[in-house]
């Protein structure tokens, strides 16, 4: 989706990094296997995080080698196949739905070139999306509704920023309804979504101002200090919600992502260096 939710790799153990890469490949493979080759292009770190977050508490991590279309020469590790309905397949499905609706949104809002590109991408993803929407019909409906509400909220300059962020946050929080631990995950994903929305707006702020595009932060009179405060607050609420979930095989990697990866992304977005190095260096 946006790719802000990723680990702070220098702080990961080597074996944790290997496993995280394996999960990344696993989600990509699930996208390819279930929804076709084009679906692999929607892969982003956010969905890998989702796969780790929704992991069954007693689910073991099995890693095996297989070939990847992106690097044909060497075999990469990927997580082994799982039973139906596991978190990897699920985050792949939810990812397709989110990506498709995001494209639909772009096709409507952006200029001619970008709208045309989004339209073509939608065409390529159409069958993948139809399949995913059949599997998660309630989520598909809610994403559609939330994005329309977000559009309406963003075009109303009198509406406070928090209310606009709320629409996007709820979109992600709807994922929690498909899980066994809805209350804690709802809170976690709500604040994760809120954080993503605000950090994305801040990241695009300079560019949007130069190109005269609309940005959720423009004209709302919010300075960096108060924006940082609210972002850190949401980040903290993500962490305190996460600690109430049962430990899984991915807990330490998730702690790295939410306790270190998100603050690093936030620091770099505010410093204006995120677009250049995407959190690779701290």
């Amino acid at each position: 989706m946006f790719g802000y939710i990723k680990p702070c790799t220098p702080e990961l153990k080597v074996r944790e990094l290997e496993r995280f890469k394996a999960l990344y490949c696993g989600v990509c493979r699930a996208l390819g296997k279930r929804y076709g080759l084009a679906a692999r292009f929607v892969l982003s770190y956010d969905f890998v995080f989702l796969a780790a977050l929704l992991w069954e508490p007693d689910g073991a991590v099995e890693v095996r080698k297989c070939r990847c279309p992106a690097s044909l020469r060497r075999k990469r590790c990927v997580c082994a196949d799982y039973a139906d309905g596991n978190s990897v397949d699920k985050s792949a499905g939810l990812g397709i739905i989110l990506a498709y609706h995001k494209l639909r949104d772009n096709a409507r809002d952006e200029g001619f070139a970008k709208a045309a590109a989004a339209g073509l991408a939608m065409l390529a993803l159409r069958s993948a999306y139809r399949k995913a929407a059949r599997e998660f019909p309630a989520f598909d409906d809610s994403v559609r509704g939330r994005l329309d509400a977000l559009d309406a909220a963003e075009s109303d300059p009198d509406l406070p920023l928090d209310a606009a962020a709320d629409k996007f946050a709820l979109l992600l929080a709807d994922v929690a309804d498909t899980t066994a631990e809805p209350r804690v995950l709802h809170e976690l994903l709500y604040h994760l979504g809120r954080w993503i929305y605000l950090i994305d707006a801040r990241d695009d702020l300079t560019e949007d101002a130069q190109k005269g595009r609309a940005n959720a932060l423009t004209g709302r009179g919010i300075d960096d200090a108060s924006l940082e405060m609210t972002l850190t607050h949401s980040n903290n609420l993500v962490i305190s919600a996460f600690e109430l979930l049962a430990e899984t095989a991915w807990s330490d990697i998730i702690r790295n992502i939410i306790c270190l990866g998100m603050p690093v992304a936030q620091i770099q977005v505010f410093a204006g260096t995120w677009k250049r190095n995407k959190g690779r260096k701290i």
Binding site: P160, L161, D162, A163, A165, D166, Y190, H191, R194, I222, S226, L227, M229, T230, H233, S234, L237
Partner: peptide, 11 residues
């Protein structure tokens, strides 16, 4: 608003 985590409004 604070309970909702809407800090800019709460403030």
């Amino acid at each position: 608003y604070f309970r909702r985590g809407w800090l800019t409004e709460a403030s």
